[in-house]
Design a protein around this nucleic acid. Sequence first.
DNA 1: ACCTGAACACCGTTCAAGT
DNA 2: ACCTGAACACCGTTCAAGT
Lengths: 233, 233
Amino acid sequence: MKTSQPGVVARVPLTRERVLAGAAEIADGSGIGALTMRSLAHALGAKPMSLYHHVANKDEILDALVDLVFSEVEVPSEAPDGWRAAMEARAHGMRAALARHPWAVGLMETRTTPGAANLRHHNATLGVLRRSGFSLDAAGHAYALMDSYIYGFALQEAGLPVGKPDSDPQVVQAMARSIPADELPYLAEMAMDRALQPDYRFSAEFDVGLAIILDGLAGLLPQHPERLLNNPT
Amino acid sequence: MKTSQPGVVARVPLTRERVLAGAAEIADGSGIGALTMRSLAHALGAKPMSLYHHVANKDEILDALVDLVFSEVEVPSEAPDGWRAAMEARAHGMRAALARHPWAVGLMETRTTPGAANLRHHNATLGVLRRSGFSLDAAGHAYALMDSYIYGFALQEAGLPVGKPDSDPQVVQAMARSIPADELPYLAEMAMDRALQPDYRFSAEFDVGLAIILDGLAGLLPQHPERLLNNPT
DNA sequence: ACCTGAACACCGTTCAAGT
DNA sequence: ACCTGAACACCGTTCAAGT
């Protein structure tokens, strides 16, 4: 059988789906820096120029990758348990997807044209808020706050030395221990007495911050007239 | 005078400082994608290889650029107006610096070795919190929450079509108007009735979310025993 | 010591040519 | 219709050679 080649998937016609799936696999496995048109083509058993028959250019691949991450997050439902449970589930789903694909959050800065899954996700989330009694302004505030938090948390997680390919606990320990306690006492304290403790997991911080944010958002509902909806100054 | 060249700064010896300042200027003016060893050398009136006598490689330049942004943010002071005013000032300063250098937040994902200004900034912020009565855990929670919010907000601002080089208001209007109101009603409503209103500015959302977060952090102080400090479950 | 010409192993992408 | 060889204009970086 001359079609089979060692280490390469047997001859299968290229499709846009196969190209995008291959791109995601490379980015997940070797980082976004390892994703080149040449490496992608090679992984698919084709030549670089063949890719251009299925995608316009690399930018289109990156746009599609971001939307692929959004498509993995379950769209917020009719909220049988109320808006708070729906927002918690969405936040957890979004953060999990961004943790599975650490390259995604860094890509968002440059990608300005949102994909279909992105739009659908945004629309559904806003829908839950609006139908739960949030005014248009309140829903806007809530969305900006929650998304900033989710994306920023994912950004910090992606930048952490832990959990990455080069995650040598000894290196992390050494880095933290190299903090000069006389010059940076508070940072040294935080590293030694908290972040480096064996039971500490940064990811657990997510729920703490999320609870504070959702508590605050509850105050934007009209049932809580003690807080002004629009201009809290 | 044969040393003067058209369009090029007269012969000045390269230094690490000049290299980094030039790199920041290119990134600010033309985007991080336009910053190459070759373009940087050309802007400094030198050849690409000369740069390697002052920096180890491009990675070192990117690390230094991120730290340069941190160095522009005033370090939180002894908090004469209390921790809340200090945290507000820090958040505003940090967000302003990230808005001035939109490429910085995207860089943070990949840069894992924090610079001196970064460490100093973190240490000072933690110091204000600790001396204001936040426990070690509470300060850790507060820091993760505030930084996630600040970075995430900056990430969203950097991704917005508005305020960028290609910020044609007609294009933005057209993009928003292309949202199918039957499929994505809540998104269309948010775009048309709020985000596209002439007096709307996304940057104003920052203070709304920040106030909610700081309100929540106040609840972590021991003076507020109604909220558990460590495990809010 | 500081600078640089030439070269190497890469990029994304175009174009003309193959089947 | 789908694929690709050759080529173009780029990258970051090394090495040996210049002053």
